[in-house]
């Protein structure tokens, strides 16, 4: 009887967990993390400006290569032109988006042109007039990846010769009208 009582007492015994060391670690960790935290994550969009020398070298090589140009004007709208050498392959003109996030027409046309030349990854961007920088960033975003569907594009890897799939469309955006003014 006495034995049973002791075991019940032992089971119901409460103990205080010492959280002080845990708290001490946290107090040291938190200032370190506050200092190295990025509360506003900043990312970058890579773009290239037309380098005169490099352009002159590659100009002759790229004579027959496909070329995609996008002209953007706040009142005249957008013109997307696909050409190969001197020959115009495809051209489409549509209105400037009414809302800054509504680029569905542009995306549809970019997907259509990407299907014609899957090996083409460069888009020459020609903003005209007072196009806000915000819109330029949205256009670059729209051109980078196919966000309309999960459809991927097959292209031939020039190094291995194998067919590869990607959802990237035109990640290489060049500002084509620099030094024109």
């Amino acid at each position: 009887m006495r034995r049973r009582k002791t075991s019940v007492e032992a089971l119901s015994h409460e103990f205080e967990l010492d959280l002080a060391p845990l708290l001490a670690v946290m107090v040291k960790l938190i200032p370190v993390l506050i200092v190295s935290s990025a509360f506003i994550p900043i990312v970058i969009i890579q773009s290239e400006l037309p380098a005169p020398i490099a352009a002159a070298i590659t100009e002759t090589k790229a004579e027959e290569a496909p070329q995609l140009e996008l002209t953007v004007h706040p009142t005249d709208g957008m013109i997307l032109k696909l050409s190969k050498g001197t020959q115009e392959v495809d051209k489409v003109q549509f209105a400037f988006p009414a809302h800054e996030n509504d680029f569905s027409i542009l995306k549809e046309n970019l997907v259509r042109m990407k299907k014609q030349f899957p090996e083409l990854f460069r888009l020459e961007l020609i903003p005209q007039g007072d196009v806000p920088y915000n819109i330029i960033v949205k256009i670059i975003d729209a051109a980078r990846k196919n966000s309309l569907s999960k459809e991927k594009f097959q292209f031939k890897n020039t190094k291995t010769g194998a067919l590869e799939e990607t959802d990237y469309m035109f990640p290489d955006v060049v500002f084509a009208n620099i030094l024109e003014g």
């Binding site: 506003i40 994550p41 900043i42 990312v43 970058i44 969009i45 890579q46 773009s47 290239e48 400006l49 037309p50 380098a51 490099a54 903003p127 005209q128 007039g129 007072d130 196009v131 806000p132 920088y133 330029i136 960033v137 670059i140 500002f175 009208n177 620099i178 030094l179 003014g181």
Partner: peptide, 26 residues
């Protein structure tokens, strides 16, 4: 507006900086 930004881009090109990284918020 783009024409104001283009002045900066043109200056960078003339100075020999051809690779531009546009900083944006994720």
């Amino acid at each position: 507006p783009y024409p104001k930004m283009r002045q900066v881009l043109s200056t960078a090109t003339v100075a020999g900086f051809y690779k531009v990284r546009l900083a944006t918020i994720s």
